[in-house]
Design a protein around this nucleic acid. Structure first.
Lengths: 98, 98
DNA sequence: ATAAATATATCGGTTGTCCGATACATACTT
DNA sequence: AAGTATGTATCGGACAACCGATATATTTAT
């Protein structure tokens, strides 16, 4: 997986969110609404969940409550490292907005 | 401009880089190489610079050394705020990789 | 049990990022 | 001044994110 492409943060944002709490699709959508200000449409979110599941990064039981797999955790970690490297001086950025 | 789309971080990364130091296209490419590990192709970087210039976010003299305009600074600030809001708990992320 | 509301899923199409290839301009060397 | 290296620019196309619309499944209410 190539982080440097960075088309769409959504996938990683979802991984990030799921790393904190198990959720179903609708709950994820709500959480995104809260964070970004806009709610992704069903046509956006469910394909992403499907893809993440097929890649083995998340799993869900019959109740459709998703959580990260071990692989998903590693993937998220890698993404974090990439972000840290790319925005190694981002701390200033965060400082500026609080 | 819609931050929540987030297709491609490149544009904002370039704004971020230019906010710290004036550079020409080649220098920007090198800096990106350093940060991301991959160097953007000319076909990637120059169209982005052109677009940013057309939007009035950056300017350059005859020497093609780019710098942020006032508008560009504001834009970057907005982007920062968006990131902070979206990843309000990202501090943990940064902690994990150092 | 039926109806209504909510959640999940799929499909087609649009858009924008990014790249590779190519062409052009400018600066540097000898 | 000619040739070489380096920087700049443009074009076409590949690919993926995202959305809107629609269909289906599941849960909740009556």
């Amino acid at each position: 997986m190539r982080y440097y492409d960075m088309k769409g943060f959504l996938t990683y944002l979802i991984l990030w969110i799921l790393s904190k709490k198990k959720m179903n699709g609708a709950e994820i959508a709500k959480e995104l609404q809260k964070r970004r200000g806009t709610k992704p449409s069903p046509g956006t979110i469910y394909p992403v969940l499907k893809e993440l599941k097929e890649k083995g990064l998340i799993t869900a039981g019959k109740d459709k409550v998703y959580s990260l797999t071990r692989k998903g955790e590693k993937e998220l970690m890698s993404a974090c490292e990439f972000f840290c490297k790319t925005f190694y001086d981002m701390k200033e950025m965060f400082r500026c907005c609080r």
